[in-house]
Amino acid sequence: MLEIADLRLDYPEFSARYDLLVPAGALCALIGPSGGGKTTLLHAVAGFGERPTGTLRFGGRYLIGLAPAERPLSILFQDHNLFPHLTAEENVGLGIRPDLRLKAEDRARIAGALERVGLAGMQRRRPGELSGGQRQRVALARALVRDRPLMLLDEPFAALDPALRADMIALVDAVRRERGLTVVMSIHTPEDVVPIAELMAFVADGRVVAADRPDRLLDAAVHPELEPYR
């Protein structure tokens, strides 16, 4: 499981303290107001920014002190973070070999990942030749080929139209179930993940205010403060 206990970060303008347990193989959706600390939490788990204090473990392994590349995770941002001078194949290939010395079997894996996100035959296109949604799907393909047991997603599909967003979320869920991944995803449209998420956490003011099954967390009769997010 992912264990976050008394995880603290202090910035001049913002202080955060997180407690959250995500069972192994579960999909946990983070919801809450913009600026409430969802991205800060994901970055802390990934190893970006200031080093926190407290407990951060995945699968029993302590993560604090490990460089981002040493952590058993992949992260997908709202900003797809592609290199504009590289092709789609090369951008995805960075998830396998950062030196891009790709072998035939690597290229086959990349082609398969691109096909799975609906971009078959687009290996040679550069980001400038792709739409915003296509660029985000290239970034998702890169996360898929990394094949790490923990996947973090920071509003990755917010710019997609509802139908494509639903398709990409369904794909993430299918891959999670196939590979036994643990997924933590921040999202502003919680209704998209209610049918598939085992856990939902409301994050505000740098805290996990509440965490429960999605149907319970979004029940305004139980948590009136969540009514705007129903």
Score class of each variant (00 low, 15 high):
D6Y: 03
L7F: 07
P12K: 14
G25I: 08
C28F: 07
G32A: 07
P33G: 04
S34Q: 13
G35D: 12
G37R: 03
T39N: 06
T40G: 05
L42F: 12
H43Q: 05
H43E: 04
G47F: 01
F48T: 09
T55M: 02
R57W: 11
R61H: 12
R61Q: 14
G65H: 07
A67G: 10
A69C: 09
L73K: 01
F77N: 06
H80I: 06
L82K: 05
F83H: 03
F83E: 04
L86G: 01
T87N: 02
A88M: 08
E89K: 09
E89T: 05
E90R: 11
E90Y: 10
N91D: 15
L94K: 05
I96P: 04
L100W: 10
E105M: 03
E105Q: 09
E105D: 11
R107P: 15
R107V: 13
A108H: 08
I110W: 00
A113C: 12
V117G: 08
G118F: 00
G118A: 07
L119K: 06
M122A: 02
Q123S: 09
P127H: 05
E129P: 01
L130W: 00
L130A: 04
G133K: 05
Q134T: 00
Q136N: 07
Q136I: 06
A143E: 12
D147V: 07
R148N: 09
P149C: 11
A163I: 15
A166R: 15
M168L: 14
M168K: 10
L171E: 11
D173N: 15
A174P: 12
A174K: 14
V175N: 10
R176N: 12
R177G: 09
E178G: 13
R179F: 12
R179D: 15
G180T: 06
E191L: 13
V194H: 11
I196N: 05
A197H: 11
L199S: 04
A201N: 10
F202W: 04
F202C: 01
R207M: 08
A211G: 02
P214C: 02
R216F: 05
L218A: 01
A220M: 00
V222C: 12
L226N: 00
